[in-house]
Amino acid sequence: MSDQSQEPQAPEEVEETPAVVPLPDEWQAVVGDLLAEGNSVDQGGLRRGVPELVTTPDQVLGLLERLRSLDEPYNRLTDMCGADLGDHLQVLYFLCQGYTGKLLVVKVNLARDGEVPTATGLWPVANWPEREIMEMFGMTFTGHPEPAHLLLPEGWVGYPLRKDYVYDREHEWTRPDPMREDPEQALGLEEEDSE
């Protein structure tokens, strides 16, 4: 909790050029100390005025908890997903302010084999998304009550939603499709001379 980070930024409505807008003061006061160091959202961030906070794996639970106990709390976890950003992975928490339409995104950057504390203690809803992210991206949610595969069969090799995932035919579960390989041969049409 030491780092008073360098200007965490949350972009506002971006029209043409991605603008980097400093975090509003009220946000800075509430959660400024929990945000990641070197937090730069220079890709334009979420459009349509959705604020976004970037933090580190060890700060994320504190941040979520604090967001939950604001005067106007972001107390509804509406969605969670992961993303593979090449050199690191990312977990996104989409929070809603109760049942108003106000949305907030918390992003956690972590190494490719990194660990994030589970949010199931705060929201039981995080159970399935976390399991899905675990099996799809290969990160670990520490303290998760049942870290088994959710959508994929047990024993699946690799993490499919990673960018470097190669579908391994050794582990092919379905019938191979000759049509995709060589349709003419599959149909028994002989190869005549091409043009």
Binding site: P18, G45, L46, R48, L103
Partner: peptide, 9 residues
């Protein structure tokens, strides 16, 4: 599209 992200509901 330009690089960026969007969340539509």
């Amino acid at each position: 599209p330009d690089p960026g992200e969007v969340y539509a509901r």
